[in-house]
Amino acid sequence: MRLNLTVDARAEGVAAKGWLRAHKWWFLRRFTQITALGVFMAGPLAGLWLVRGNFASSEILGVLPLSDPFIALQSLAAGMVPASVALLGAGLIALFYVMVGGRAYCGWICPVNIVTDTAQWLREKLVITRDRKLDRRTRLWVLAGALLASLLSGTIAWEFVNPVSLLQRGLIFGLGAGWTVIAAVFLLDLLVTRRGWCGHLCPVGAFYGLVGKASIARVAAARRGDCTNCGACFQICTEPHVITPALKGTGSTLILSGDCLNCGSCIDACPVDVFEMAMRGRSATPR
């Protein structure tokens, strides 16, 4: 049984392309995640107010409003009509993720992804094999539950326990009760189930997965005829079920599932460069 799946998945890519090329997209993702978090923290910690607000609602340089569309939905469910500027910000964010891939938020922006990836790395280092299977559709039920809770309570219910907001506040203001939620997410992925939070429970990921069904930017198995069946892409992918139709099917080579994070991990891991970033309407047939 292969226990160090992430290391094993990258091994052939590293051997074929070198360490840097086999980690190209990983480095880009970590850079954007840390930069996004750093921009939000620069104001309260260093007085550099490039962005005011948080991941839920912010304003760039005092001009461009941005709002989480999931927050806007909860506001509407709670009976509160968001201000026009908030609706504009939610529309801009939704449009952006329709273009780049809904769950690109999870892989490229969300700071909790670093927490869960760290839990996965430690899980493999400690050879923890316990993996309680959860239905990935559970996150859709949590999404519906968050909207129902907003409806019944008249509040933006998810923000009380949102790990992203709690992590940001914890890093700025220090330890608090919010760290209990972050620790619970970490321990869930470490001790209970592989990729449990992002893959099965997070309602924000579920929401952006729905948005991502229409996204323009996609990963494509453009050279699937070159596939050696090494399995590296399936081992490294956090949502491996999205790969099969594009890699093993006879139709489009585009990964069209909204569950795809557009993270590029499969591109990094593949030793024969089967995968590439593409656009809907292009790279639709194998080369």
Rank of each mutant, 00 (worst) to 15 (best):
A177F: 01
A16V: 04
A278S: 15
V181I: 15
I156A: 14
A16Q: 12
A206V: 09
S252W: 04
K24V: 06
S283Q: 01
L151P: 00
K24E: 04
A157K: 11
A284T: 13
R218T: 12
I71L: 14
R21W: 13
G18F: 10
F27N: 04
M277N: 06
T138H: 00
L188D: 04
V274N: 12
V7I: 05
G89P: 04
A284M: 12
V85T: 13
W108P: 02
V185Y: 03
L167H: 07
G101M: 01
A36H: 14
M277A: 13
G79R: 10
T250G: 14
I71T: 07
S84P: 02
R282K: 13
K133N: 05
G101K: 02
S84D: 07
G154L: 08
G199D: 06
T118D: 07
T253S: 12
S75M: 15
A222G: 02
T32A: 14
A86I: 11
G258C: 05
V81R: 14
A221F: 05
V81K: 14
A15N: 11
W19Q: 01
T155D: 07
W158P: 00
I109C: 03
G281K: 11
L191V: 06
A36R: 03
F234E: 10
L134M: 11
G251R: 12
G209P: 02
V51I: 15
